[in-house]
Design a protein around this nucleic acid. Structure first.
Length: 291
DNA sequence: TTGACTCCCCGTCAAGCCAA
DNA sequence: TTGGCTTGACGGGGAGTCAA
């Protein structure tokens, strides 16, 4: 993960917690996106004190205390008595300088069944289901809060996909259309539909810098002349949709793997912190014993 | 330069899941 | 029950690397 520091951070969980802070004192750290009911916390620290805007992301365990790791450059921002609010009580923020920042809990929305992928108290039925088939990446990522845009408007999807040069198709009504690509709407293509006289629609598939591909989508019994052609078109449609679905699925899978890797990093640091704590407690105990 | 190897991405198929 | 969606599995192709 960008900006995540794995090894430098140490946590002192025994550090005294500051008294509860009024919510009004939180102004310096802006929560741009804090999904209290999910496991991922996105924070954007505002550009201040000559610091560029900084993003923090952490995976919060559903039923555990959690650790938020930060990059080195946001330590000055975090170190001035600011409070980051998360929905999980008793969590800690881990920074390369080893500072501990107490967290105050606000707006707690308890996780519900959306956490069933990882929660400890799964019903036997759910557990059985998980053994037979994994939940979809879309569901997992929605649960994690990493993919809030389940329903995209077509324009959003257009801009996102075109910006990544992903081949993309869309179903459009019959008639002439204009498609713009690039910022500011330059490079506008006008496309006349070959089936504009029919009631059918067409599928437009395009990618940045590529030619248009405009197959005609057959309305059942409308254009086709025989069952064989109809079946061939149906197959073509199915393949086209599945192609898109596979692409999307792979994207989700990569995102899911990234989330898991983040979680591993967080847990490793948490484990390291707990080991350190145990060590220091042992030392303290031995010291007191000898006195 | 070339062949072997690896990695990544893609398209397709098939099976399971799920909402209507 | 069924049609559409999701995803694991499989194979192919392109790009990069490395030793011969």
């Amino acid at each position: 993960m960008d900006g995540m520091v794995d090894e430098n951070g140490t946590v002192d969980p025994l550090a005294p917690s500051p008294p509860p802070v009024a919510i009004s004192s939180v102004g310096v750290v802006t929560q741009q996106q804090l999904v209290a009911s999910t496991n991922i916390v996105h924070l954007t620290l505002p550009a201040s004190n000559n610091h560029a805007q900084t993003q923090v992301q952490s995976v919060i365990q559903p039923n555990q205390q959690s650790v938020i790791q930060t990059a080195a450059n946001i330590q000055p921002v975090l170190g001035k008595g600011n409070v980051i609010l998360v929905s999980k009580p008793n969590s800690v923020i881990q920074t390369p300088q080893g500072s501990l920042h107490a967290l105050q809990v606000i707006n707690v929305v308890e996780t519900t069944a959306s956490d069933d992928s990882y929660s400890d108290d799964e019903s036997p039925k759910k557990r059985r289901d998980l053994l037979t088939r994994r939940p979809s990446y879309r569901k997992i990522l929605n649960d994690l809060g990493g993919e809030p845009k389940v329903e995209q408007t077509s324009s959003e999807a257009d801009s996102e996909l075109s910006s990544h040069s992903i081949p993309y198709h869309t179903v459009i009504p019959a008639g002439a259309i204009q498609i713009s690509s690039g910022e500011g709407g330059q490079s506008i293509h006008t496309l006349s539909m070959t089936n504009s006289g029919t009631a059918g629609a067409a599928i437009v598939q395009y990618a940045q810098g590529q030619e248009f591909f405009v197959p005609v989508m057959a309305q059942s019994g409308n254009i086709t002349s025989g069952g064989g052609e109809d079946q061939a078109r149906k197959r073509e449609m199915r393949l086209l949709k599945n192609r898109e679905a596979a692409r999307e699925c792979r994207r989700k899978k990569k995102e899911y793997i990234k989330c898991l890797e983040n979680r591993v990093a967080v847990l490793e640091n948490q484990n390291k912190a707990l080991i350190d704590e145990l060590k220091s407690l042992k030392e303290l105990y031995c010291k007191q014993k000898t006195e």
